[in-house]
Computed example of a mutant assay.
Amino acid sequence: MGYIYIFGTVFFTVYGQIILKWQISKYGGLPPELWDKVLFVLRLLLDPLILSGFLSAFVASLFWMAAMTKFDISYAYPFMSLSFGLVFLLSIFLFHEPITAHKVIGLALIIAGILVTSQSA
């Protein structure tokens, strides 16, 4: 059951990141003037999907608290790195972000780190 808590944490973390990127990109860049920045942020905060991204971060933290009752943090936390890989893959397919050698190497190192740290002693 503990792994479901970790999966929930990763899932809701990734959802929040993807939904925020998707919705914020619809609003354009951050304006240069302070007052325009304030209005820009207020518009973002009124967007229901952006609010769902914030809610997903809260839900992810609830799953994380449950995971902490089942695992040592030194064991569970490396699994949070899976969110990097999932966001990377989704950003390619959803936002057509470029695949670079540096990103692929970095992702491979993250996966290797997860494999090494998840091994029982």
Rank of each mutant, 00 (worst) to 15 (best):
L51Q: 07
M1P: 13
G28P: 04
P31E: 04
S81V: 06
G113S: 02
G28M: 05
S83H: 11
K26Q: 11
W35H: 11
V116W: 01
Y3D: 06
A60W: 06
L86Y: 00
I4F: 15
S52P: 02
Y5I: 01
G53Q: 06
V10W: 04
S118C: 01
T100C: 08
F93G: 15
S61H: 12
S81E: 08
W22Y: 15
L20P: 03
P78F: 06
K70D: 12
D47E: 14
I19F: 02
I24R: 08
K70I: 11
G85T: 14
V41G: 00
T100Q: 09
K21N: 06
T69S: 12
L107I: 14
G2S: 07
L89W: 09
S52G: 01
G106H: 02
G113K: 07
A108H: 05
P32M: 03
S52V: 06
M68T: 10
D72V: 13
A57T: 10
K37E: 06
G29M: 14
M65S: 13
L46F: 15
S81G: 12
L39I: 13
V116H: 04
L51K: 03
Y5E: 10
I111S: 09
G28F: 04
G28W: 09
S91T: 01
V104H: 11
I111D: 11
W64K: 05
F40W: 07
Q119F: 10
V41N: 07
L62Q: 15
S61Q: 14
D47L: 11
V104G: 11
Q119M: 10
L46Q: 12
Q119Y: 11
T100S: 15
T100L: 07
S56E: 03
I6Y: 09
S52N: 02
L82M: 15
L86N: 00
G28D: 07
A66L: 15
D47Q: 13
G106Q: 07
S81N: 11
F95P: 00
S91H: 00
S83P: 11
V14G: 10
D36K: 04
E33T: 07
G113Q: 02
T117R: 03
T117E: 05
G85K: 11
A57K: 08
K21I: 02
A112M: 14
G16F: 02
I50A: 10
T9G: 04
V14E: 07
L44W: 11
P31C: 04
I19A: 06
S52W: 00
D36W: 00
S91A: 12
S83E: 13
I24G: 01
S118D: 01
P48N: 02
S61G: 09
Y75W: 10
T13C: 04
T100I: 08
A60P: 05
I24S: 15
A76V: 07
L34W: 13
I111E: 09
I114H: 06
T13N: 08
K26W: 03
I114G: 04
L109W: 10
K103C: 15
A108M: 15
L44K: 06
L90R: 01
A108T: 12
S74W: 07
L44Y: 05
A76D: 06
L94W: 14
F71H: 06
